[in-house]
Amino acid sequence: MTILDTFKSRIQVAERILITTHEYPDADGIGSEISLCLALREYGKKVYCVNEEPLLERYRYLDQDKVVYGFKDFFAKHPDFKPDLMIVVDTNTKLRAGHQICHYIGDAIPVLYIDHHPCRGRDLSDHCIDVTAAATGQMIGEMIESLGVKFTKKIALPIYTSIIIDTSSFRYPTVSASTHKLVAKLMDTGINPPEAYNGIYGTKRVHHMHLLASILNTASTNKDETIAWMLLKKEDIDKYAGDVEDTHAFINNLLVLNNIKVACMFRDDGDHIKMSLRSSGEYDVGTIALALGGGGHSHSAATILNREPGETTEHVIDRAIKKVEEALKKMSVT
């Protein structure tokens, strides 16, 4: 049975559906759930999107029909809604959906995961997992087509946006001919690329450029320049009135360096440090992140680094970079 067959078979027997995504969602999760919700309504289903928290203001332009609710708001307005299927997009564990959502799903509500992240060591063959897809949004677009639902601009824009974000504007190795074929169909609905790009990335104030400059000024490399990294401090974000959501793409500036194999960005949040990793695809940063307690794709991954007693931020970074170097040596040997 193909992923599309699995999807259609689960949808056919469900009438009342809730869709959710991971906690602190990005545009791939948000765009995927909005587009799927609108398409399933066109298909005749009663559907809502319910997330752990209400939709952030920056993403509300994608939700023109206001289909996304925060958990408390939804059940205050629809206390008697009983779903016969819960669809979780852009993650493959209910634990990542947030405490309230996870508790609500429990063991009684049937769940369907739709995701393109690896699920190492777990059998999710009866769900929709495709690690070769460029974005969960690409999977959702193909699923909508399989139902025979036509793309409207309202349905197409959130998917288009999810693909822009999760491919870093089509630069990752998972982008395929199928990705661009779907994008062409989405654009046929009247999507304007510059408008869509500015919508999700936003037009910037000069303080955003100052924040980027301060972070780029911390860029360092190891001796053979195969690993590069930079440090983002909370005080810098506060100083330049920045938004953490606007800093995710900063790491991609390191991928232009000569000889680069792995790029890292460390975000010092005080109690812990978030480490993001990127590669051009030649080296699997998902495996590196997994060894550090995180996970992700071969080209894009992340983990949380906890401080040991007495450790400075520089010590944590040095420890992490040494582990990345060790991992690259092993990969080069194999």
Rank of each mutant, 00 (worst) to 15 (best):
M1W: 09
F7G: 01
S9A: 15
R10Y: 09
Q12E: 15
R16G: 00
I19Y: 06
H22Q: 02
H22Y: 01
E23Y: 11
E23P: 00
P25E: 04
D26F: 12
A27N: 12
D28E: 13
S32N: 06
E33G: 07
I34C: 09
A39E: 09
L40A: 11
G44H: 09
V50M: 01
L55W: 07
R58G: 11
R58L: 04
D63N: 08
Y69Q: 10
A76N: 11
P79L: 08
K82S: 14
D84S: 07
D84H: 10
V88G: 03
D90H: 06
N92T: 08
A97S: 15
A97V: 09
G98Y: 06
G98H: 05
H99N: 12
I105R: 03
A108I: 04
I109Y: 14
L112Y: 12
Y113G: 11
I114Y: 00
H116N: 06
R122Y: 14
L124T: 04
C128D: 08
V131R: 08
M139F: 04
S146D: 08
V149F: 00
K150A: 12
F151W: 13
T152C: 11
I155S: 08
I155Q: 02
I163R: 12
I163K: 05
I164W: 05
S168H: 11
S169L: 07
S169V: 10
V175A: 06
S178A: 05
T179E: 00
T189A: 15
N192T: 07
Y197K: 06
K204L: 12
T218H: 13
T218I: 10
S220E: 14
T221E: 03
N222A: 03
D224I: 09
T226K: 08
W229C: 11
M230W: 09
K233V: 00
D236S: 11
V244M: 11
T247K: 05
F250E: 14
I251T: 02
N252V: 03
N252H: 12
K261G: 05
C264V: 11
D268Q: 05
D269T: 15
H272D: 12
R278F: 02
E282R: 06
E282H: 09
E282Y: 08
V285C: 10
G286Q: 02
A291E: 14
L292M: 03
H299I: 03
S300T: 01
T303L: 03
T303W: 04
R307P: 11
E308D: 14
E308T: 04
V316G: 03
I317T: 13
D318H: 15
A320S: 14
A320W: 02
K322F: 06
K323H: 06
V324E: 12
A327G: 01
K330S: 08
M331F: 12
